[in-house]
Write a protein that binds this DNA or RNA. Structure first.
Lengths: 117, 117
DNA sequence: CCATCATTTCAATTATCGTTGAAATATGGA
DNA sequence: TCCATATTTCAACGATAATTGAAATGATGG
């Protein structure tokens, strides 16, 4: 991830409603949620929501697909992980004794959802 | 870390110059750098820099201390780590099969500099 | 085709952001 | 004290952000 992408992603997340939207989508998992559901759950006007979705999408943090009349938005874990990596990476790069042993992946995402819910 | 703090921290990092400033300070380590050095290295006007330092400081991402005529700014790894945790935490919370085994600390900061790398 | 639902587009408004230049403050030295 | 250095404060500016209301687009069912 390049610096500009990191700034874009950070800016996309640096807003109350968008952070809510993104976290909601993350919890919804890969199958995502319709714009209408998000609007209702968060109490946002649909046009306002479109604005925020655009920002998240432009930052590569969500994907969108049409399903019938609804637009289904879903979080892109890949980008979120790249951002986390970038922040860690760059913040530790060039620093001699920076947590040399403690560099586990700590990736996000749903693993084949074994589950119940 | 609360949501508002996360948004503040994200917003503080979501800007070209500030991300540069913060990363420079991270590399400078706990001893920090004077405002003047940062200004010169990044080619920023001192007053502009003050503006950005204020945002970073307000977000708890840097500390400042006077040393002679200079102001020494230093990164606060603690806050950065809290932000990384918050992003991971909340992004995985409530998700049943979310990388259950891969949750290592991955903290930032200088560790007593063992230096092998 | 018409009516309806779901979402987006557009224009306008208010607020905040990042930068600049000029002036102010604080420290240290002659 | 006077001067130079280091940084901050202040006022102003253009640019961008978030929200709103009204209208447009696209899909579905009768």
């Amino acid at each position: 991830m390049e610096k500009m992408d990191a700034v874009t992603a950070l800016a996309a997340l640096a807003q109350d409603n968008r952070l809510d939207v993104f976290r909601l989508l993350v919890r919804a998992g890969p199958q995502g949620m319709s714009a209408g559901q998000v609007a209702e759950l968060l109490g946002l006007a649909p046009n306002t929501l479109t604005f925020h979705f655009d920002r998240l999408r432009h930052a590569g943090l969500v994907t969108v697909a049409r399903e019938g009349r609804s637009m289904i938005y879903a979080a892109r874990f890949e980008t979120m992980n790249a951002l986390l990596d970038y922040l860690s990476e760059n913040c530790c790069a060039g620093v001699s004794g920076c947590s040399p042993g403690a560099r586990e992946p700590k990736k996000l995402g749903r693993k084949k959802s074994k589950v119940s819910a």
